[in-house]
Design a protein around this nucleic acid. Sequence first.
DNA 1: TCCCCTGCCTAAACCGGTTCACTAAACCGG
DNA 2: CCGGTTTAGTGAACCGGTTTAGGCAGGGGA
Lengths: 361, 361
Amino acid sequence: MAARAGVSKTSVSFAFNQPDHLKAATRDRILAAAAELGYRPSPIARRLARRRTDQIGLVVPQSTHDIFANPFLPELVRGIGDVCDAEGIAVVIVPPVAGSVARAVDAALVDGLILLGLAPNHPDLDDMRSSGTCLVGLDIEDFEGFDVIGVDDAAGASQGAAHLRALGHRDVAVVLIAVHPDQPVDEHHGISARRLAGIRAGFGLAPGADIGTDADGDGAVRLRILSTPVSEEGGRAALATLLEDGELPTAVITMSDVTAIGLMAGAADEGIRIPEDLSIVGFDDIPAASWTTPRLTTIHQPIREKGRRAAHRLIQAIRSGSDHRPVVEVLPTRLVVRGTTASPRGAEALVRSRGGGVVTV
Amino acid sequence: MAARAGVSKTSVSFAFNQPDHLKAATRDRILAAAAELGYRPSPIARRLARRRTDQIGLVVPQSTHDIFANPFLPELVRGIGDVCDAEGIAVVIVPPVAGSVARAVDAALVDGLILLGLAPNHPDLDDMRSSGTCLVGLDIEDFEGFDVIGVDDAAGASQGAAHLRALGHRDVAVVLIAVHPDQPVDEHHGISARRLAGIRAGFGLAPGADIGTDADGDGAVRLRILSTPVSEEGGRAALATLLEDGELPTAVITMSDVTAIGLMAGAADEGIRIPEDLSIVGFDDIPAASWTTPRLTTIHQPIREKGRRAAHRLIQAIRSGSDHRPVVEVLPTRLVVRGTTASPRGAEALVRSRGGGVVTV
DNA sequence: TCCCCTGCCTAAACCGGTTCACTAAACCGG
DNA sequence: CCGGTTTAGTGAACCGGTTTAGGCAGGGGA
């Protein structure tokens, strides 16, 4: 290529990267020769020399197939894309390789990583921390030394629980997130634990308690904890499990809208009416939460904003190098009451008689 | 690093890539030194030397933000992921850079590209064809020399139209895809054109005709063509446009479910009942098409399978090099009748009196 | 006329690995 | 003990660019 235009390869490099360093005639000659030969600078070689890949990775703990079954993910990617598109940075999905997140991360062609859905005790986390690549954690606690973007899980969950409590629900199922169907959920760390704590607080239960008389003394509360994968099928499975239990709870709180939607679909198949027979509260407020009938009552979190912040912090970390000061950002959550929650059948009369407002049946 | 373990860099390379070429003791010594120093082989350098990035790109004609507003995309990515995860290949999203698809493609760090949503006359297509990278086109006609995975757009659209026709609809809006809001839709090439032709056929209209008495002589058919971006907002906008027109059509066919869902949401806000006041037919059959009430009547296409085939063909093309024989695969579509279509108000009595079957009101 | 500066371009080092061709030592059967 | 084959490891070329330091010619000022 260089020979063809009769110049050095330095000049070729200049022609593409710093056209002003070259006389216009020379530059045009090089570009003409390039066009004629169909030459294009090798993206890989350029990246090696520049020591920048202009790519960031989104690390997820499950297969692409499973992770994208949750509409949360595309929303997050949209937010990440808002920042990355503008900066000319490409986004790579980094699912585990042969089950190992660490292996995937070591091979990833990126300047930095956004970590999604990793529990703080994930075995591969140490490997990443010491890898030297820039990291931003999403929804992860105790991630010393790196940026963390999270949401106020406990507050949101607590609002959702308080809402159900006010409606008069006392027998409530909580559907946690099962990353692997057989692996038990860690109820002390991670996102499920934070939300569960919020739910207990919202019901006035002691930390760790699943049964109890709440503080106002208005009846025994019972929490049933189960966990399923985050997907429509997971939601259906949760409903099936509850049906096997014999008596259905009067309400369900899930950790994601897609699970709630699966529950609704399953309920429709079974002739269970929402919200008359069963109230449902989701989490996330994905767009599809407004597409169901009734529309889904859910705990809103700013998904796209989360993606934007994560991408922004990561790019900043990459650019500023070692003098980057990591921060922890906690974005707000809020309960969005729509159509899938109502008073349970038995309590209905009581609630009505009080004339609405904050209800303490 | 090499010095630290007292070996050549060749041996270091062997230790990581071909452990059997080394005596166990030597390998362990190298690995130990690597662990101690926190050394990891540079992914970029390795890719340069190997002349393989182990990445493929998904080229989309719009920003990440816009493209992921359509749940079609995550479904497609799931299919691509099914193949790529297993092969240890990462998937990169390749949106236009500064509005140029060609620029994005030239800079992309990939072994091959899956092209989505590009009209056959897209200005950047020539650039890609001549780039030398492996290509698979989705839903693109006349893409000589490369693999193409498509679906039978015309047949599906025709089925949808015939369904509406049989129900008695004569005034029907067709919502095409607007990549850029102001840019007119090419009615002769591309996906919208193929489907529009199918719709005309399904209504017994002559090619290119928007008004006509259909072949059976059972009343004048009128097609209103409009186009909006593919998103929930686009669907709402389409409904708004139709409302401005004065008289609403009795049915709408859209080119994507998400648009149909937006239409439904808009209709709900306006108090327009689906399907009593307005029938709606979608396209794609995304999961969310089953989440609405009523569930969406739509033209199913095998989205994930499309992604799988595309990824499979692309990887094959990458591996087999110049002796790769491109093929064109056309996957089937089919109408899935659910709850958003019914006879229009006026025709209802007539249809009933005939006792169902193929209706020719 | 000499010197320095500026504009344009280049040689060579470098990015950090992989791979090929080759050597030295160990092993092997006869 | 010898020639031939393995085994273990190495040096150097290579992947295809970027970047730094510097060379050379022409112009302007002293």
